[in-house]
Design a protein around this nucleic acid. Structure first.
Lengths: 184, 184
DNA sequence: GTGCTAACGCAAGAGATTTCGCATTAAAGT
DNA sequence: ACTTTAATGCGAAATCTCTTGCGTTAGCAC
């Protein structure tokens, strides 16, 4: 969804109401029963409006999830590299395990939009980069961002996607271990 | 889709025709335009038949993709652990880069069925386990299957999914390197 | 080859989805 | 305050999705 040409109160309210409805419904019932009709009913926004603004259900879900992601919690700052990494890894693992977990993943490569998601990713990447930079300033020897993603994030998502069995915090910590061991 | 009670020529032909149509359409157009109606039209199989046999579009896509995966090539046997791993990693990377790459991933967690997919995954796991066992017999010190998945497979899929930018063979080889280094 | 019946084709119809024209509301500009 | 006009609400109409009953085809067993 592109920035509204008229972002004033009304459009914003409609957007928020619809997003809330999508998230509610997504939590209550499964996938196949979700429809634009039900979102309209729940949100109090007229069907036609939703069709006009979002067009399709996937696009709507995508927009909703992307919005959630953008609001996403900040990267931790615990004072040590290992602390930051463990905090971040366990939180991502928990997120993925949560009810919206598969949606995040889905949004990533379903995205009709794409644009917003890229933004999210680079935002995220910048935040992580800042975290690594802090460690560097403290005199630690942090890994590359790419290594962090490949060794920690990738396995977390992998388990969630392919085994449908998200990992726990301890397991997430072993990834951090592995990452740090590779450099130490 | 379960094995037909009457697997003779007709059912098999219908199944193949429908699968082909799905794959064709999936290559040509995007997602939202795929529908059972279009599959019926393209395949020459009547809509009602498709609804009766598969029920829903996700189930059909799932079945199609799973079928493709099952036909998938065997794990390599080059004579050395590193050789096997590199061959396997580069092939997976190439598969994921291919036109059906994202479909594989999608099918993995859309799957209403799950049954067939589980089967595929465990099949795959067993084959990989056999590869590692061969190495063990040769006196090499192979990694755990889990490590192989987390350090090699996970990053490959990660790149494809989140960056929409599949990796090349060289990059895939660095993952194998990392894996072996972790044990050596 | 003959009968049996699962699987398919066909067409109609119920139901859900999506679009459209027009009236109304309220944000933004003056 | 007044005007302009995007965005929404509304309901009907068009379209698409999916189901169902019945006749037909063709594997399969004998």
């Amino acid at each position: 969804m592109q920035p509204a040409r008229r972002p004033g109160g009304r459009s914003a309210k409609v957007r928020a109401a619809v997003h809330d409805a999508v998230l509610e419904l997504l939590r209550e019932e499964d996938w196949d029963t979700l429809s634009i009709a039900r979102v309209a009913e729940r949100s109090g926004v007229h069907q036609a409006t939703i069709y006009r603004r979002w067009g399709t259900l996937p696009a709507l879900v995508d927009d909703t999830v992307t919005e959630q992601l953008s609001k996403g919690s900040p990267v931790p700052d615990t004072g040590s590299l290992r602390g930051d990494l463990e905090a971040y890894a366990t939180r991502v693992a928990a997120d993925v395990a949560g009810p919206l977990g598969r949606l995040y993943v889905r949004a990533a490569h379903i995205g009709t939009s794409g644009g917003d998601y890229e933004t999210y990713m680079t935002d995220r990447a910048l935040q992580l980069e800042a975290m690594l930079e802090r460690a560097r300033r403290r005199g630690e020897d942090p890994p590359e961002l790419l290594e962090l993603m490949e060794l920690v994030l990738a396995p977390i998502y992998y388990h969630a996607i392919f085994f449908n069995r998200p990992i726990g915090p301890e397991h997430a910590r072993t990834y951090v271990d592995r990452l740090l061991r590779l450099r130490g």
